[in-house]
Write a protein that binds this DNA or RNA. Structure first.
Length: 621
DNA sequence: GCTTTCATGCGAACC
DNA sequence: GCATGAAAGC
């Protein structure tokens, strides 16, 4: 593999190191080369822990490693996300923390349901749901829930401590962990059980972490707990830290040398992606941030351009962007090499409309994850209910999906039959054997319970097929779908699910994997080429020939909620930086005076960028 | 008459 | 996707 001198120096260094890698500097390439290099030097691949930000990135890295080393994918069992690696560790030793295997992962759906139940118990306004969920999550990801709760004791008149505790007690009694608990409990395990810690420390010969700038407190602590010999290699770019809102803490990156004495710092400053005309104004912009490492990014590519355009309304802005895209496409740039990036999801609407109006193909990146789609959620709830009889959320969902004439009142009635320590499905079983229900409901319920019993020991793909056949799920989808296309798409999703599930031997194995994969979308091969519409967050790590950063209004980017805090404004500026550096050749920054019924001046970031454009050699039209 | 289903409007930050 | 109220079904 060809490497620059800077990349090579980082790859060949052994011992604690931080690689400060600018946008487009070949970060992933360096990381992969590093693992390959270690293997060449005799490190055992199975004992290398390489943490990636997403499952997709983990798969991509394994694929590259396979190409590079000739070893099979299975030789890299510890190329994983933090969540995936921690669950593996936690599962192994969960008895030490008082769990009874199998340990269940509560994904968003179950977590939501549980929090809502608890809020009803506390008689809280359901509008506070987001506040409750995010408080619980922040408390955990801070690494010190008690400390967090002391600092944020109340949600309205309610004590966060009481809600938090009620939620944790429920989770524990169901042998379940939510996503944040995967990290929190793994931390507790490694911190409090020396023997376990010593084992893992001895086992891992090298730890590598990608996107280290977006590490949260818990993840930083876990890294330290797992590190035995000081062989730590972290890669990232503090200028691109954009997940502070969900607990990421860039201080771990900035303070790396303080945390790891005698750590070496490597800088990758050459941008191989963007033209210098784009790199320069992006550098200029980021200089307005106070908290950042110094780095002088440059590019050897010339011939790019940055333009700023101001419009009266968002419709006008969107119309212009669509026209420009059509024009650029006529000049030979393929649609999928162009992207429209915006700060918040709702901004996409006028752009979608303009694209449709002009008949241009487009696709939305970071759309609903595969596992959050209704049909996938339904099927997975069937499997979950079969394997985890105590999972009320899953059972309640399938109880009346497809419609069986069992509504909320009937659920109440069934619930009255609940025995201590049994779930809703247990209550249903008692109601059936007690023969207290009307003919139709009795039959429907006993059929459902029979189905769950039958699929429990099956292979996952066979279980899915069985659910489809015996519930008439396809008919239900057909009747629900508004268009024929929607029906076909949903059925194709289920086909794909069956295909993916066939890789696993048991339903339990399959569910564990499915729960850990949240963000993976359908894979791109069968998607038609089109202009990419995405939030800036969703565009991280991607690159396009042409980029439009739209909605550069002072109330939108920076987001109005962030304006009062210096550190949040800095994060917004990094967001702008990420957006700009997605572009290879042409970058358009656009703004509208009037959007969604409100007036807003031009973003301060545009003003900052414009300063550098005036100094540069190139005039904008 | 009670329960479920259907129809409609409203709002959703980033994951 | 959720809340609401009207229509349909047991």
């Amino acid at each position: 593999m060809e490497l620059s001198d800077e990349q090579r120096a980082a790859v060949e260094h052994i011992g604690p190191a931080l690689v400060v890698a600018g946008a487009g500097s070949g970060k992933t390439r360096t990381l992969t080369a590093k693992v390959a290099h270690l293997i060449e030097r005799g490190y055992v691949p199975e004992r290398i822990l390489a943490i990636t930000f997403t499952n997709k990135a983990a798969d991509e890295m394994k694929r590259r490693l396979t190409d590079l080393t000739g070893l099979g994918m299975e030789r890299f069992p510890w190329v994983r996300t933090y969540h995936s690696a921690c669950f593996r560790i936690l599962k192994e030793h969960c008895r030490l923390l008082g769990y009874e295997p199998p340990l269940q992962i509560y994904s968003d759906y179950q977590q939501q349901k549980l929090i809502k139940d608890i809020m009803i118990r506390f008689d809280m306004d359901r509008k506070k749901f987001y506040a409750v969920r995010s408080a619980i999550s922040s408390a955990k990801n801070s690494g010190d829930p008690e400390g967090y709760i002391d600092a944020h004791p109340r949600i309205g008149p309610f004590r966060l401590f009481d809600i938090y505790q009620a939620y944790e007690v429920e989770l524990k009694s169901r042998n379940a962990v939510d996503f944040d608990n995967i990290l929190l409990k793994a931390r507790d395990l490694l911190r409090d059980h020396e023997a376990v810690r010593t084992d893992y420390r001895a086992y891992f010969s090298y730890i590598l972490v990608d996107e280290y700038q977006d590490t949260n407190n818990l993840q930083a602590e876990l890294t330290r707990l797992l590190l035995g010999n000081g062989n730590l290699f972290c890669v990232g770019d503090d200028w691109q830290a954009i997940y502070g809102f969900r607990g990421s803490n860039v201080d771990h990156f900035l303070g790396f040398q303080r945390s790891y004495e005698n750590a070496s710092i490597f800088r990758l400053e050459q941008n191989y992606r963007s033209a210098d005309e784009i790199v320069k104004p992006a550098n200029w912009l980021i200089k307005y941030n106070r908290d950042r490492m110094d780095k002088s990014c440059f590019s050897a590519h010339k011939g790019g351009a940055v333009e700023v355009h101001e419009f009266f309304s968002d419709e006008e802005e969107a119309g212009w962007v669509a026209d420009k895209i059509a024009m650029l496409n006529r000049s030979g740039i393929p649609y999928d090499q162009m992207a429209v990036l915006y700060r918040t999801k709702f901004c996409s609407l006028p752009f979608e409309q303009a694209m449709r109006f002009s008949g241009l193909p487009y696709k939305m990146l970071g759309d609903k994850g595969f596992f959050e789609r209704k049909e996938i959620l339904d099927i997975n709830c069937y499997l979950t209910a079969a394997v985890f009889p105590k999972d009320d959320a899953a059972f309640e969902r399938i109880l009346n999906t497809p419609k069986r004439g069992i509504g909320p009142k009937m659920v109440e009635k069934i619930n009255a039959w609940r025995a201590p320590d049994s779930g809703l499905s247990g209550a249903a079983a008692r109601a059936v054997s007690g023969k207290i229900l009307s003919g139709k409901v009795h039959k429907e319920l006993s059929d459902l319970l029979g189905l769950l019993k039958d699929i429990e020991p099956m292979a996952p793909d066979a279980a899915i097929r069985e659910v489809m056949d015996r519930t008439g799920y396809a008919d239900y989808l057909k009747q629900q779908a508004r268009t024929e296309d929607e029906f076909t798409a949903r059925m194709e999703n289920i086909e794909q699910l069956m295909y993916a599930a066939a890789r696993f031997e048991t339903v339990l194995d399959y569910l564990e994997e499915a729960a850990l994969i949240r963000e993976d979308k359908e894979d791109g091969q069968d998607r038609e080429a089109g202009v990419n519409l995405a939030t800036i967050h969703a565009s991280k790590g991607l690159e396009f020939h042409v980029v439009f950063v739209v909605g550069c209004d002072e109330n939108l980017l920076p987001h109005w909620k962030s304006r009062d805090s210096e550190s949040e404004v800095q994060e917004e500026r990094r967001l702008m930086y990420v957006a700009m550096t997605r572009a290879e050749k042409f970058l358009f920054l656009t703004t509208a005076d009037f959007r969604k019924g409100q007036f807003s001046p031009v973003s301060r970031f545009v003003t900052e960028v414009a300063e550098s454009l005036e100094q540069g050699p190139r005039q904008n039209d």
